[in-house]
Structure formats: C-alpha cells, structure tokens
C-alpha cells in the first residue's frame, strides 16, 4: 500500500480509537454518581420504590458492558435517551432538546470562523514578514493582552460600549427558529465579535510563530542566496511547506472556539448548546451532559484529525516515498 494511504488509515484508526475511549469515559460518568444521587434528583420525598424505578429507568440495574453497548447503539442512531429534568411532566428526548441548540451554536461558530480565520492568517503572516517592525510589536502586545483576558470580560466590555452606551448593536442574542437571517446576524453580532477577538489573537500569534520557524530553515536562506525575489521565496519556497503548521493552527483554534462558545453564549443568553450544557450541569441532568460532552469531544477530535490528515497529505516525504 502507498505509505500515504497507510499513514492516513492509521490516523483514522487512531481517531476512532480515541473516540471510543472518550465515549467510555463519558459513559462511565453515570457509574461514578454518588449513592444519594437519585434522591437529589427526585427530591427528599422520594420513596424506595420511586428510587428503584428511577435507577431501573437509567439502567443502573444492568451490567455496565451491556449498558455501554446499548448506549453506543442508541447514540449512533442519534438517540441519547431522555432528559432527567423533563421526565416529571411530559417526556422530552435529549435529541429533541439538542437539535435546535446545536444548529444555533454551529451558526455562531461558522460565522466567527468565516471572519476570524482569514483575518488571523493575514495578520499572522504580515507580522512574521515584518518581524520586529512597529506593526509587529503593536499587534503582539495587543494580542497578548487580549488572550490574557477572560472571555466574559471582553464580552461585557463590548456590551457596555457597543450596546448600552452607543446602542449600535443588540445586547442580548435571543434568537428562535423564526428569526430572519439578517436579523439573526445582527443579534449575533456581539457574540461573534467577542469570539473573533479572542480567536484572532490566538491564531495570529500561532501563525506568526509557525511562519517565523519556517523562515529560519536553511532552504529559505538558500533560496535567497539563489537570488529569488521576496515574493517568490514566500510563495514558492515557504508556502508549500507551511500548510501543515497553518492547518494545525487553524484546527487548534477552531477547537478552542468550540469551548469559548460556552461562556460567550452564557453572557449573551444565546440559545446554543453551550448554554444547554451549563443548565444541564447545574440541574445535574446527566443524559444531556453526556450528549453535549460527546458532541463537543467528537467535534474536537474530528477537527484535529482533519488537520493531521491534511499535514500528512502535504508532506513530500510521504507523498513521494523512496
């Protein structure tokens, strides 16, 4: 088999393996629940029978392996069980809860990525090319300050100035299924701006570091000594070798975005999956927490896997084996 194909298959296998281990970790959570958990959920008034019935319902009476197999089987079909919190009145499945929220979060994340990725790459490459210039130094200290701040500080600052003081943008990002696209974008403006600022700072710094690393390679100096113009050194000699580091930077930051979303959604009360997870953790609604954690982890693993595969596919040593 071509070594490239073999390496990619290996990585895919490793990714699946990781997902498997992660699913076990997430699944095992239920078994770590303290003994009085059912009481905490059902309230102090719960009788022995209701507790037993509850434990049966979440399947604690079956052996763990069987429970795991059933759980994974359901998850693969998009079925995460039913929420603890909604069980008293009418039953709501986790999938029902998650679906609209997930769509909202994906909307916010893609909007941010569409702005942040090109902006950060451009800034990072420029800062690397004009290293130690005034531009570089300013961008550097601004981004260092930005990444040091908690997201909610940034979020409230923006809210205070752009929404409360200047009334340019809506302060809360409440959307529902009926919201028009344009309206949706306007309401998402502040959360998107917050996330963009944070992500751009991270991504720009990492891009700059990756490019500077690359420019220190002997073959770049050789290209200069061969009389190549600055643009040719960058485009022909640096860029083909830069895909791997740049893709890794982008993947790392998109993964960071996934997490950053949780806090920002809370600030702007945006009905996304992050908010849902926080509410579920507060209510200790385990099936929902599990589902959210699994979705976050799977996204994270997939992003990293994609980056890995792109770096492998652009590595000349693997593309052209001996």
């Amino acid at each position: 088999m071509h070594p490239l194909a073999r390496t990619i298959l290996q990585r895919l296998g490793l990714g699946l393996m990781t997902l498997f281990i992660v699913s076990i970790v997430i699944f095992s959570m239920v078994s770590w629940l303290p003994g009085d958990f059912a009481k905490a959920i059902l309230g102090q008034a719960a009788t022995e029978e209701t507790v037993a019935a509850f434990q049966k319902e979440i399947g604690l009476d079956k052996p763990p392996v069987q429970r795991y197999v059933e759980w994974v089987g359901n998850v693969v079909q998009g079925e995460f069980g039913s929420s603890f919190a909604s069980r008293v009145g009418y039953k709501r499945t986790v999938a029902e809860l998650i679906a609209p929220r997930l769509a909202n979060t994906l909307f916010l994340a893609s909007l941010t990525a569409a702005i942040a990725v090109p902006l950060a790459l451009a800034l990072g490459i420029l800062a690397a090319l004009y290293r130690n210039s005034l531009f570089d130094r300013i961008v550097n200290s601004v981004t260092l300050t930005t990444i040091s701040m908690p997201e909610f500080f940034m979020a409230y600052l923006l809210m205070l100035f752009l929404s409360v003081k200047l009334s340019w943008l809506p302060g809360l990002a409440s959307v529902d299924a009926e919201t028009e696209l344009l309206e949706r974008i306007t309401r998402c403006a502040l959360p998107t701006l917050t996330l963009t600022l944070v992500i751009v700072a991270h991504m720009m710094r990492m891009t700059r570091a990756a490019i500077i690393n690359l420019l220190a390679c002997p073959y770049i100096e050789m290209a200069r000594l061969k009389g190549m113009s600055k643009s040719r050194v960058i485009l022909r000699h640096a860029l083909p070798n830069a895909w791997a580091p740049i893709v890794n930077v982008v993947a790392f930051n998109l993964a960071y975005l996934v997490v950053g979303v949780v806090v920002v959604e809370a600030v702007f009360t945006y009905p996304g999956i992050g908010q849902l997870m926080v509410d579920a953790v507060t209510a200790r609604d385990i099936p929902v927490v599990q589902a959210c954690a699994l979705i976050f982890a799977a996204t994270y693993i997939m992003l990293n896997l994609t980056a890995d595969i792109i770096s492998i596919a652009t590595n000349p040593r693997l593309l052209h084996p001996r």
């Binding site: 002997p218 073959y219 000594l225 009389g227 070798n241 040593r317």
Partner: peptide, 24 residues
C-alpha cells in the same frame, strides 16, 4: 545584489539535506 546572486555568484552550503526545499 539579488540579481547577481545565483547567476554571477552562487553558493554551495554545508548541509545539502537541509538546504534543498523538501517540497520540490
């Protein structure tokens, strides 16, 4: 100076393995 490099004055480096671009 750039136009002279490579055409009128050229350079052979110590480590050939590091001085060739791996991508071409």
């Amino acid at each position: 100076k750039r136009k002279m490099r490579g055409s009128r004055i050229s350079y052979v480096a110590q480590s050939a393995a590091a001085s060739f671009n791996p991508a071409h």
